[in-house]
Amino acid sequence: MKKLSLAILFLLVSLPLDAQQYDWYLNGQVIKGFILKHNEHVGHLANSNPSGIELSLQQKLNGKREWENIYKKPLVSYGLSYYNLQNPKLGHLVVASAAMDLPIKRTENTALYFRIGTGLVYSTNPYDRETNNQNNMVTSTITYLLQTRFTYEIKLNEQISLTPNLNITHSSNGAQRAPNRGINIITANLGMSYKIKSQEDKEFRDITPLDKTPYQVYLMVSGGRNTRTLQVREPLPFFNLLLYGQKYVNPKSDWGVGIEYFHSYSLKEQIATNWFRIYDEEEIADFKRLGLLIGHELKFGKLGFITQMGVYVYNPSKSNMPVYQRFGLRYQFHNNIIAQVALKTHAATAEQAEIGIGWRF
């Protein structure tokens, strides 16, 4: 858990922070919303209206790198948020996040942004078997964050802007502990930005051209620990092996296909301890799985946001639905070396949080 958290934070701060080259803003938000009932097992908790505040430091990218111009000079945000979930079983959340706000449309005095964000969440009252066993949403003190947001910016003058937005915040422990339902909060926020630093008035030349290699092949090894049931409470190791071919489409996108092998000791333990098999004379099913997948990478220079969908072609245990998804961040350290952090899910249920290293041929 600690290693994965550090890896996520490293990837998030991989963007430049030289204050002299960027416009910097201080943004504040007032938060109000509701908890989404995304699963029938969380209905007893999805009955409150969370409120909170957010404070973030934002930098407007200046086009120094080629990809910044392609995305029309987006905003990068580093934020700290507080949520009062208005339910004693759920407690309070403190969120540390980093995000990219991509401009959809800009005019002289307005702009519409779409956010992709991630980070870490601290919970004051997570699940406890003895004292808080009804909280099946937030089951670890530290969980992972996925966030999307639509922000409409209204410029009042050269320094001050209004920033109302609609926001979806998802927090999950990545199956580090069971139960693993996760929490989804939908909010309407009212905010304001104040420019605290202007960039130096000078021309910037492109110093980082984009990689436009038409075809790439990756071999990726990833792993971690997870738990699948309340009967098997101790997280056990897993690893995946992925062979993935990727095709360059345009400066923003790559598409790919792959074949993937899954080796999960928690699934093996779940199958072995399944009490339905006590009176079952059939042989215990194989825990190993094989999947075929398609994927997309949204590229921001060396950093990429990956989305993948796969189907199991070998899954004798039939322990999950036949289709799985993966969402994560990928960073290219070298021409041949890549690192990745990701969350693998089956619909709204996370199976595992992964950290991986790969070689590009």
Results as ranks from 00 to 15, higher is better:
residue 225 R to E: 10
residue 177 R to K: 15
residue 281 E to W: 14
residue 234 E to K: 15
residue 167 N to D: 14
residue 240 N to I: 04
residue 30 V to M: 12
residue 277 R to S: 04
residue 256 G to K: 09
residue 282 E to Q: 13
residue 189 N to Q: 14
residue 245 G to M: 12
residue 75 L to P: 06
residue 50 P to C: 00
residue 142 I to K: 02
residue 126 P to M: 02
residue 290 L to D: 06
residue 349 T to W: 07
residue 20 Q to H: 11
residue 324 Y to E: 03
residue 342 A to I: 08
residue 9 L to E: 02
residue 315 N to Y: 00
residue 208 T to D: 11
residue 185 I to L: 06
residue 133 N to L: 08
residue 115 R to E: 15
residue 227 T to E: 10
residue 99 A to N: 03
residue 6 L to I: 11
residue 151 T to S: 12
residue 325 Q to T: 11
residue 282 E to G: 06
residue 265 Y to V: 04
residue 21 Q to C: 09
residue 330 R to D: 03
residue 266 S to Y: 00
residue 135 N to L: 01
residue 341 V to D: 00
residue 216 Q to M: 08
residue 209 P to R: 02
residue 276 F to C: 05
residue 148 T to F: 07
residue 87 N to T: 02
residue 165 N to L: 01
residue 10 F to Y: 11
residue 259 I to A: 05
residue 306 I to K: 11
residue 335 N to W: 09
residue 164 P to L: 01
residue 276 F to Q: 12
residue 333 F to N: 11
residue 181 R to V: 03
residue 304 G to T: 10
residue 155 K to H: 13
residue 334 H to R: 13
residue 316 P to S: 13
residue 222 S to G: 09
residue 6 L to P: 00
residue 126 P to V: 00
residue 2 K to F: 14
residue 122 Y to C: 08
residue 213 T to N: 13
residue 63 G to R: 03
residue 214 P to Q: 00
residue 303 L to V: 05
residue 308 Q to G: 00
residue 27 N to Y: 04
residue 94 V to E: 02
residue 69 N to L: 14
residue 291 G to I: 00
residue 135 N to W: 01
residue 279 Y to K: 11
residue 115 R to A: 02
